[in-house]
């Protein structure tokens, strides 16, 4: 098994060198206009994806599509390096987009949206086959959509079926989504045999629980105990205590709970997860840590390019965009 990761990690390390560095991002930030930003971007690894975005009359949707294509092509490439248990673990890292797609299908079906609208909202990433997603999107109800996903044998199919049952019982979309989220985390923890990956996922769950508590406080509502995600260092009682600002002695959770706004809480959460991913990558050179760190860096790179692109498109001051990018 370590041999698998030795190969994958070598390939991923090479890919990591192609990520945009600070200088390239600075050049993009310094661009005087949106067109110039696209020109700067077309001198990088993103060039093949920008054909549509640089066409006449193209705008932010084309840029977003180009960046998404780049991100998901990269993730698929990483997945292509892996096999066996390593593949299962890399798949776990990509499954958050499957989760997002299953939620999109569920939201669309519950909201009575047409299959076209649902398909438009699907993310071209993750591990679920697009044909299976389209079949599920074209279903008449949640039970049929769950059956369409179950046919693929996907690990989240069971969670989707449970979520559909939860919705049938309460009629609340919230229950469906919470069941799906909890099913997703249950599966990721089950698959993650590597200690480093488990450590990262456990911290991600802590961060998620802390953000839920911080959001509930910002909205002035009570903390819903059903939103608790097990698998981190907190138990249900500890989660309930988060509402009162008790971080249970965890400095990580405290930094999120004590942030002055939701934006600051998110920045604290992101910083924490970035640091954890980096630590995992350093300490686990023969495991999925490097892949995890790379995928995070890639996502952040894409997010920063989306920010700069939007800033340039709306002609915002460079300093304002820089502040947002550095947040």
């Amino acid at each position: 098994m370590p041999d698998d990761y030795a190969y994958i990690n070598t390939r991923v390390r090479v890919m990591r060198t192609k990520l945009l560095d600070g200088r390239a991002l600075d050049s993009a930030l310094a661009a005087g206009s949106y067109q110039e930003f696209l020109r700067v971007l077309s001198e990088t690894e993103f060039a093949p994806d920008l054909r549509e975005a640089t066409a006449e009359g193209a705008g932010l949707p084309e840029l977003d599509r180009a960046l998404s294509e780049n991100l998901f092509r990269t993730t698929q490439r990483v997945l292509g390096f892996a096999d066996g248990q390593a593949r299962s673990e890399v798949e776990v890292l990509l499954m958050k987009w499957d989760l997002a797609n299953l939620k999109t299908i569920a939201r669309g079906l519950v909201g009575g949206r047409g299959s076209e609208a649902i398909v438009e909202g699907l993310i071209p990433g993750g591990t679920l086959r697009p044909t299976a997603l389209q079949t599920a999107a074209g279903s008449n109800d949640l039970a049929s959509a769950a059956a369409a996903i179950a046919v693929t044998g996907h690990p989240l199919a069971r969670a989707f079926r449970t979520a559909a049952t939860a919705y049938a019982g309460s009629g609340r979309l919230l229950d469906l989504e919470v069941a799906l989220d909890q099913g997703y985390y249950r599966h990721t923890l089950k698959v993650a045999r590597e200690l480093s990956l488990r450590r990262y996922l456990s911290r991600e769950i802590n961060v998620t629980n802390a953000l839920i508590a911080r959001t509930a406080r910002a909205q002035g509502g009570a903390l819903d105990p059903n939103l608790f995600v097990p698998g981190g260092s907190l138990d249900a009682g500890g989660f309930a205590r988060l509402a009162g600002g008790d971080a249970g002695g965890s400095a990580d959770i405290a930094s999120i709970l004590e942030s002055s706004s939701l934006e600051d809480a998110e920045v604290a959460a992101r910083t924490l997860l970035d640091r954890t991913a980096r630590n995992v990558a350093v300490s686990d050179s023969q495991g999925p840590g490097i892949i995890l760190d790379f995928l995070r860096r890639k996502e952040i790179e894409i997010a920063k390019l989306r920010l700069i692109g939007r800033g340039k498109f709306y002609n915002l001051p460079t300093e304002q965009i820089r502040r947002e990018v550095q947040a």
């Binding site: 998404s68 999109t104 939201r107 909201g111 609208a117 920063k304 989306r306 947002e324």
Partner: peptide, 22 residues
């Protein structure tokens, strides 16, 4: 929305818009 679409991806934000009944 500007920040949400950049950090959480436009697809994720648009997916959430499907959750509303309108």
């Amino acid at each position: 929305l500007f920040g949400a679409k950049a950090w959480d991806s436009p697809e994720a934000v648009e997916s959430l818009s499907l959750a509303g009944t309108g």
